[in-house]
Design a protein around this nucleic acid. Structure first.
Lengths: 112, 112
DNA sequence: CTAGAATGATCCATAAATAATGCATAGAGT
DNA sequence: ACTCTATGCATTATTTATGGATCATTCTAG
């Protein structure tokens, strides 16, 4: 990395991370899985599971989402099938949107 | 770090990350925000925004969630108020659950 | 078609995340 | 109450993610 001496996050982002961590922890406990067990199954360390459950902003998306998947947590309130469907939808939407945004002439879509 | 020569992720985790990236990208474009602009507002680099939008598993939760918040994306399909409420709920749930899981006697809750 | 800009990708140096370990504490179950 | 285990936290070594710069490509607008 290079410069980030320490970052600042919006309240929304922080709460979202904390919520994700809490949901993972709750789901894990409900299923009777230990931290060590979850760590091993996710292929990460015990400490990282702990930090993810605490909602620390530094943990990687991959580790957090993998842990969530293992404890059966459905991100975005979607089951596996729905998730795949959502993916298609978003991919389609992307195809319809302009592929680059012009900021020069400042043509923001929602100003008129 | 220590050992992870390269990790393997479940399909669900990968799709979730990809979906998050696509949603951020779509929301960004819909709002007419450039990658550079989003990067600056989130306090991260252009390259990182790009990697987040691609759904790369290595990016940090903090960077991704901050980007999502800036483009107005509501994680977990919850608006800010609902998010805070969800937090309370999860915190309450946690208080009711056992604080440590016993794996020794293998007393999994959902087997009977 | 042209010009300008945004995007996508690569390279390098460095700060940061992670794994591993050990230890103290708290909790569960008997 | 006691024991055994899970958890929380700190430390260190190593790996990796990130920022910054640069270049090629693709898109937009005229």
């Amino acid at each position: 990395m290079a410069k980030p001496t320490h970052r600042s996050y919006s309240r929304y982002a922080r709460e979202a991370a904390e919520l994700l961590g809490l949901m993972i922890r709750n789901a894990r406990i409900e299923r009777g899985i230990t931290v060590a067990d979850l760590a091993e199954r996710a292929g990460i360390s015990r400490g990282l599971v702990h930090r993810i459950e605490k909602g620390e902003m530094g943990s990687s998306i991959g580790a957090a989402f993998e842990a969530a998947a293992i404890v059966g947590l459905r991100l975005f309130e979607a089951d596996p099938t729905t998730l795949t469907r959502h993916l298609s939808i978003e991919r389609s939407k992307l195809a319809l949107l302009p592929q680059s945004v012009r900021t020069g002439t400042t043509r923001v879509k929602d100003d008129f």
